[in-house]
Design a protein around this nucleic acid. Structure first.
Length: 271
DNA sequence: AATTTGTCCAACCGCCCCATT
DNA sequence: CAATGGGGCGGTTGGACAAAT
């Protein structure tokens, strides 16, 4: 017997959202905040599944969501982050201010794959190991996954440097202009997921950084740090980061820096 | 003008993780 | 320790629209 469904499907609406439904959802969340998605539809007077409400809010209604064409910088960043992270759209979205994982995923599938192919680049198909698979493959255990059945998956131990994960709340993007904030280092408790930095009237950003060298094998073996540093579940160091109009450029610079560090480290190891 | 084919993207589905009981 | 439920994620689908025939 499988799991009980997340909600009773009978009598619930599906398909495109009406303006009235959007309004009900927005008003409810503005008043009571996000969360409690299961009980939200009933409380808000919506005949929708809680998951559907969450998706509608996160991908469409949430303030600050950037819509429209992707800039070249954004495209470039997506391609590079995808080569690093694979189809982990939520992580990629976390580094593209105002863009949702769904939007990036769609954009990748409809535009970027074609674009890359037309320039002679074959995007790598990524097999994303789940944590379960990672732990299964650990210590040379055979995988139960059909695709990898009978194979012993060895995790190559190479060094990588953790890029600085930056999460930016949507608010700062409303007018696409950021105030400059000086860089400084602070610490925060593991309970506060992000340090919130007030940079203006209604603007707020959430930032965290991990200036830590990591072992790639450690990351893959699912000790949690990989996800932790990418997703920002907790923090050891938290920096205030300069915010300006060229946010994408800055993330890109950061990426280049990361690549340089990896190359230098590999040179050192080889010599 | 009518029909077919292709493209795009919002939304759904199923699975997973993790906290709680 | 196992069962349960909430929330989140990635893959996929289906309908609207555009372009081609």
């Amino acid at each position: 017997m499988g799991r009980a469904p997340c909600c009773v499907k009978e009598g619930l609406r599906k398909g495109p959202w009406s303006t009235k439904e959007d309004l009900l959802l927005t008003n409810y969340i503005n008043q009571y905040g996000e969360g409690q998605w299961r009980s939200l539809p009933k409380n808000a007077g919506l005949l929708r599944c809680g998951k559907s409400c969450r998706l509608r809010w996160v991908n469409y209604l949430k303030p600050g969501i950037k819509r429209g064409n992707f800039s070249e910088d954004e495209e470039d960043l997506i391609v590079r982050l995808h080569s690093l992270l694979g189809n982990r759209w939520s992580l990629i979205a976390g580094r593209l201010p105002g863009r949702t994982d769904n939007e990036i995923k769609n954009y990748w599938n409809t535009h970027l794959i074609k674009k890359l192919k037309s320039t002679g680049i074959e995007p790598k198909p990524h097999k994303n190991f789940t944590k379960k698979e990672k732990s299964r493959n650990k210590e040379g255990k055979t995988s139960n996954n059909e695709k990898f059945k009978g194979q012993i998956v060895q995790v190559e131990k190479i060094k990588v440097f953790a890029p600085k994960p930056i999460r930016i709340s949507c608010g700062i993007l409303r007018n696409n202009s950021f105030e400059n904030v000086t860089l400084s280092t602070t610490t925060c408790s593991s309970n506060s997921n992000f340090e919130k930095v007030d940079v203006g009237k209604d603007k707020e950003k959430e930032v965290k950084l991990f200036p830590r060298e990591l072992d790639f094998g450690e990351l893959l073996e699912g000790d949690g740090f990989y996800d932790e540093f990418l997703m920002g579940e907790s923090c050891k160091f938290s920096n205030k980061v300069e915010m300006n109009d060229n946010m994408v450029e800055k993330v890109y610079e950061e990426y280049l820096l990361l690549l340089t560090e990896i190359q230098e480290d590999q040179k050192e190891q080889n010599s």
